[in-house]
Nucleic acid binder design. Structure first.
Length: 356
DNA sequence: TCTGGGGTCCTAGGACCC
DNA sequence: TCTGGGGTCCTAGGACCC
């Protein structure tokens, strides 16, 4: 039996959800940003194809997007609406009867045993559109990497297949940056080694990559160049390992007392959220981003896993105390690392507090 | 006009132990 | 006075992704 992995990815997800409930936005440049207000600090989290023609891209500073297209419609994100749409999309996928692995709000892998994967891809596109009004693209691959990369070639609204047979033929001349897992830093390091294409990466000298990236990562990169990697689709999602919040200030602050208040209240908020999640924290990490942009973190291990607000607050303040607060701060974050759950089969639980 | 917020995973290097 | 290896655990930070 043939084994295929499908990667389903919604087209322009957040903007599509907005347009769905406000049809008058259709055809307009629409930008959904961290905050809806382009005069504040934030980035573009989604933009319509019309906005793209002005050079607006996901991840771009909101102010820059506004400069490029002042007449665009700027919207704040509506996480409830996206979560709801995401649930309906995933339900439609699961009803296909195949194993579905959610890989984000707007994307999932689908396991397919059988021939003619394009037929299932088209069926999935139709089902998702009928049940949610949203359009998706589908990549087909014999590995997850190939399926994921194929989706980019399928957009918008299409289907594309990548397998051992056509991988190098299709991808060989693209820059390695197009591969899933190669970001700007790795791409630059590869370029410094003279590796500018997927083909060059696939046939790179293992010794050279070992020297630059280490034994494990080096060989992984070559495999990535060949499109090789895992092809297992798993329905169960592992429980989250951490949970937290961060906030970028509109104006940098060097007010230590204000930062302390913020950290304390954030730690208490976290305590409430962890209780709702039925999880306990093992460690509290405070992250500060100093102006202009250097980020540092300090963590404090809790004596025993807890959701107690007083203890989380004390740990967070202790972590904050490790910083020297002598420079303006632009972002503050508090994160809890979580104890394992009973469902973590085989994963050792952290040592329990032994109270004699 | 600088660069969000939610995460995950990997690694370098120090501490400590045998 | 100088100095081996191996192993583990922990922290901070880097890199990446959506």
């Amino acid at each position: 039996v043939e084994h295929w992995v499908l990667h389903v990815d919604l087209d322009q997800f957040v903007v599509a959800v907005e347009v769905l409930r406000r049809p008058e936005l259709r055809g307009l440049p629409v930008v959904v940003g961290t905050v809806g207000d382009p005069s504040r600090r934030g980035v573009v989290s989604g933009c319509s194809y019309e906005a793209r023609t002005f050079g607006i891209r996901s991840g771009m500073a909101l102010r820059e997007a506004h400069r490029r297209c002042p007449q665009a419609v700027f919207l704040p994100p509506d996480f409830e609406a996206y979560r709801d749409a995401s649930r309906r999309v995933m339900a439609a996928l699961r009803d296909s009867g195949h194993v579905v692995e959610q890989a984000g709000w707007d994307e999932a892998f689908v396991d397919l045993r059988g021939t003619e994967p394009e037929h299932l891809a088209r069926d999935i596109q139709t089902a998702v559109r009928d049940r949610t009004g949203l359009v998706c693209s589908v990549g087909i691959g014999d590995t997850k990497v190939r399926a994921k990369v194929a989706t980019a070639l399928a957009k918008p609204a299409g289907v594309f297949r990548l397998s051992t047979d056509n991988w190098l033929e299709v991808m060989g001349e693209y820059p390695p940056r197009r591969l899933w897992g190669i970001g700007p830093r790795t791409a630059a390091r590869l370029a410094a080694l003279g590796i500018h294409t997927v083909q060059a990466l696939a046939s790179a000298d293992p010794v050279a990559l070992h020297a630059e990236f280490g034994p494990v990562h080096g060989l992984q990169l070559i495999a990535l160049g060949k499109g090789e990697g895992p092809s297992t689709v798993t329905a169960e999602q592992p429980p989250p390992r951490s949970h937290g919040h961060q906030r970028t200030f509109d104006v940098d602050t060097a007010d230590a007392a204000a930062l302390e208040r913020e950290v304390a209240s954030e730690a208490r908020t976290l305590a409430g959220e962890l209780a709702l999640m039925a999880r306990t924290a093992t460690r509290v990490v405070v992250v500060l981003r100093f102006a202009p942009f250097d980020t540092h973190a300090h963590g404090v291990v809790l004596e025993s896993p807890t959701v107690d607000a007083d203890r989380l607050e004390a740990a967070a303040l202790e972590a904050l105390g490790r910083f020297s607060l002598d420079r303006p701060v632009r972002m503050l974050g508090v994160r809890a690392e979580l104890a394992g759950t009973d469902s973590d089969l085989g994963a050792p639980l952290p040592p329990a507090a032994s109270t004699p």
